[in-house]
Simulated assay, not measured.
Amino acid sequence: MAKQAKNLLVRPFVKWAGGKRQLLPEIKEHMPKHFNSYFEPFVGGGAVFLSQQLPNIVINDFNEELTNTYKIVRDSVDELIEFLSIHEKNNSSEYYYEVRSWDRNGQINKKTPVEKAARFIYLNKTGFNGLFRVNRQGQINVPFGRYKNPAIVNEEVLRAVSNYLKHNNVKILTGDYEEALKTVRKNDFVYLDPPYASLNDDKTSFVGYTFNGFGDKQQEHLRDVFKELDSRGAFVMLSNSSVPLIHELYKDFSETSIIVKANRSINSNGSGRNKVDEVLIMNYR
């Protein structure tokens, strides 16, 4: 069956720390040529799955605000664009902090799923560096970004992504990555893009966004999940920082691992943006 031409407008509609857009050429080059269903349990901004536009996929994230937004883009894109237009017209530092305060003053509980999705995109496009960061109370605490012309209403992209999600078998899950992988079978392809292992002890490193405490023990457990998926006969690819911990955990797959370069902000200073080593680990050649 001939493949459909890919719509170039089907691409991430949010910014995402550690996003994979710049690594797409290497990821695409090393994907298996033929597989059944596709699974991405740490979906984030979705650069990989959106670039492929596959017909049968499962995406997952523990971030309920993010997965709600994917569902709203699929099901209610017209209403979403209307709310985003309101945010765009009112955008200012004062307005940003008013909208951000919804999860502090209880207003968020009165909002519809569409309003929550519009808020999520608005804060993502106008907050500092497009970060998603919450405090211990689960409240977004990213400061205003002061961009001149943020793309708050990217209508063409939103409609293109909506059309793709609506007309393909895309299952959107929320929760633990391991639960999302329960239905993986032989010849399925799994791409794992977890919170990265720290490059060093610098807590402002770009890999420092270890949501829910994704530390060394969690990295070790993910390695066990990788091996278990391998035993099922699935194709598995994992991306992570190229650090001793990761190379030691995946030493059994060293022959099918490659080092790639990515531009990342490796400290809180903007001058710290530089190329750093990342690794793609596969269980296949």
Rank of each mutant, 00 (worst) to 15 (best):
E179N: 15
Q52H: 04
I59E: 00
L165T: 07
E29I: 07
Y164L: 01
D103P: 06
P41K: 03
S76Y: 12
H30L: 09
Q52R: 10
N267G: 15
L9G: 08
I281R: 03
N141A: 08
N105V: 12
R11G: 04
P55A: 13
D75G: 14
N60H: 10
S76N: 14
H87T: 03
F49L: 08
Q53Y: 02
Q219V: 09
V134R: 11
F144I: 10
K71V: 12
Y38Q: 02
T204V: 07
V170L: 08
S162H: 06
Y95R: 04
R133T: 04
K33A: 13
S239N: 04
L131W: 09
R273E: 12
D61T: 03
A160Q: 01
R104I: 10
E82K: 13
S257F: 03
L181C: 11
I281D: 01
R119F: 04
I172S: 11
M237S: 09
Y196G: 01
V77K: 06
L192E: 06
E248H: 11
A151C: 13
G19Q: 01
P25C: 04
P55F: 06
G215D: 14
F214D: 10
E115F: 01
F206V: 03
F49A: 03
F189N: 00
V243W: 02
S37C: 15
N36Q: 14
W102L: 01
S254G: 11
R146Y: 11
N263A: 12
Q53V: 00
T69K: 07
I27Q: 01
I259P: 07
H87I: 05
L238E: 02
I121D: 06
Y70H: 11
A5G: 09
Y284Q: 08
N169Y: 12
N141T: 06
Q107R: 15
S205D: 08
I81Y: 04
Q4C: 01
I281P: 00
I72A: 00
N135T: 11
F235S: 01
R185E: 15
S254K: 15
L9E: 10
Q4T: 05
D75Y: 12
L66E: 06
K111W: 06
